[in-house]
Design a protein around this nucleic acid. Structure first.
Lengths: 216, 216, 216, 216
DNA sequence: GCATAAGCGAGACGGTACGTCGTGTCTTCCT
DNA sequence: AGGAAGACACGACGTACCGTCTCGCTTATGC
């Protein structure tokens, strides 16, 4: 990821750029086959056709390596304009769910989060590489909804930032929990229900549901 | 947890009941001091004043042991009637957040969830010991809100079950994400904001916020 | 070798006696095949069908292990009575040379001696396991020669001890140097010449030699 | 040592002569501080202010380097005429012992000899750089003794060469064994005893000793 | 005087072995 | 039979050196 590519000095043999990519790809492959806990750095090095030392020269350990390997997965998230806030949310959540359903993300993400509870540097790396990077989606979605008139413009920038964080926690948290803890697919149906809840709230959702049931 | 208390046969020395409790307590202590990844079964055995063999006779491994040790933490969750759905939710979420802020829960919970992505039996154990056990809170809260007339009675039991699951994913997921990933405290202020979003939805919340800002 | 067999405590699984023998034999085999510097403890463990940890539990490292492995070789030295001091010496030196010509001794012995120059404990171990153990041959030979009247009885015990040490240094040193440094075989002819020098001295030997040459 | 100084070709930058000396000195310093087994070529290069590549361009490896570094030590051996064969021997042996007592010689010499048991080229290098170089002392001493009439002139040149080898093995071997294996100083007293044994032989020495003891 | 060619410092590279630690099983003796 | 003690086979850890390589220089010779 960031500035791991050759440090200060200019002399000496430069670091192989290809090695970085090979290592991250090998890490994801190993996550798929073995999962987090059975993944070993020796094995990753072998898969990447690289010496263990090369790997340790660039990453401090398994945690840092996996964060970088997983972070790349989330960079493919896009937010195409689907015409309405609800549709935009559904689209983003589905994409997020699709990534989380991939075994390399499943295995790796929660593991590094768990590790990060005791390692502030790791926590910061996760935040920088993954969390903050993807908050852009929330910001973009809100701006678009405001342009459409679906949401009012924010007046208090601090409050607005808090809301972005809250929404991110709710969305990411719900999808992760659904996918990893409940271990059920976050499919279109579930995403529709979740989006309705997020937009309209529990009271309204319950009322609608009761209404529907009555009609049927 | 479940059927570890002395098996079928009646001959021979019976298993020490005290050992179980000591082992689980030692596990939690080790989680606090060392975190998941540095916790070792040998160390837990030593702390509990027990031989490693005894430990392995009762649990299959680290994962199962930690699930049981952490599950006990969540059994202290209660849902006192605070007079309104909003207040009930706030109370429950705060309690949940308080437990999750304890290092033994933080360290252990996400780690076993991560492990469970590749181990169906472990996933089942987590669901049985932790998730399903605590869904009672959602059920209880809904029943109470319905009695108060804050929520309509459900008509379709299947749809109702789906809603319980959804709410649980949203609540648990949001708190976990806030606490572990964003690494910010789920304090009273945050819980109020979250509860409002949960009850009223994003559109309403945004409108209210805009309104407040205007008035000020 | 000495008291490595199960330490103080009496509880727990006892150390495998077979493992010791297997490890020492494997060490000698590895010395023959690979020599000192390419011998690795991991390889020895594998050859012995033993885990590396077992090996480290019993020996502090390569040096100590090799000392013990080599020491066993010298225990087969015997001093049969061949009727005269000269013949006894020749017999002992030939046996010593035979052992030193075996590759496991060649490779290992000088290496541990070299290491011992910076490790007093190792030096002591060599002295106890090898050197002092074999000084018995010098003592036995002298006693026998005195009984035969070939050597006078010693009067000053301290001086006598010094002489034993000196003879051992000369004999062992000469054979080692001939075998390892000059890299020539210490065969019967060489041993005869050496024994004559040892018994009669340089002046006498030179005179005899000149005499022989004159006669021829 | 020998043909390391710039090879065939004449074009290109010539090898730095200073580097050679710096490397050998650094090697001896490292031998003193670390001993043979902990000496690393990387460290030697650093000490000498030289790149590892430079070192490998000139020596094949640790063994060859150390042989050269140690060989230089022995070149300071001299054989001043002390008036008698006994005095000449004592002088030479004391000088030899003095060199062997220096840690760089102690650590390095036996180690390369040990290595040479499995490496004919190294053995040859040792012989050429060290052993044969110092045999001059024996030759010189004998010639001087013959001139003085202490030893008869040799008649059979082959036999004479064998005797030189034998004496060298006995002298060098005894001093090395005394110094490194017995780990006792080869001081004046010991050298006197050794010289007497070498010149007069065991029988005569024992008789003298018995005689002395009787007188006392 | 400018190309050619080797030497050189720096440091990354693919390897191999290290010595330690954790796992889950086993063996022995003691309740 | 249960249990504490601890040895055991296994396999990963993260580190240290090895000997080689690839850089961007510098320092000679020879056309």
């Amino acid at each position: 990821m960031q500035t791991r590519t050759t440090p200060a000095g200019r002399t000496g043999r430069p670091r192989s750029a290809a090695a970085d990519a090979a290592i991250l790809a090998a890490t994801r492959a190993a996550l798929v086959e073995l999962g987090w806990s059975r993944l070993t750095l020796g094995d990753v090095a072998t898969r990447a056709g690289v010496a263990k030392t090369t790997l340790y020269r660039r990453w401090a350990g398994k945690n840092e390596l996996v964060v970088d390997a997983v972070a790349e997965l989330f960079d493919e998230l896009r937010l195409p304009d689907r015409g309405s806030l609800a549709a935009d949310i559904e689209g983003a959540v589905l994409q997020f769910a699709a990534i989380l359903s991939r075994p390399e993300a499943k295995s790796g993400l929660m593991a590094v989060v768990a590790e990060s509870t005791r390692d502030a540097a790791l926590r910061e790396r996760i935040r920088a590489s993954i969390v903050d990077r993807q908050k852009r989606l929330v910001l973009e979605g809100r701006a678009r909804a405001q342009a459409r008139g679906e949401l009012p413009p924010e007046n208090d920038p601090e409050e607005a930032a808090r809301t972005v964080d809250l929404i991110f926690d709710v969305v990411a948290g719900a999808v992760v929990h659904r996918t990893l803890v409940s271990a059920e697919p976050a499919d279109e149906e579930w995403v529709r229900g979740f989006t309705r809840l997020l937009l309209r709230g529990l009271v309204d959702a319950s009322a609608q549901e009761a209404q529907k049931a009555l009609e049927a």
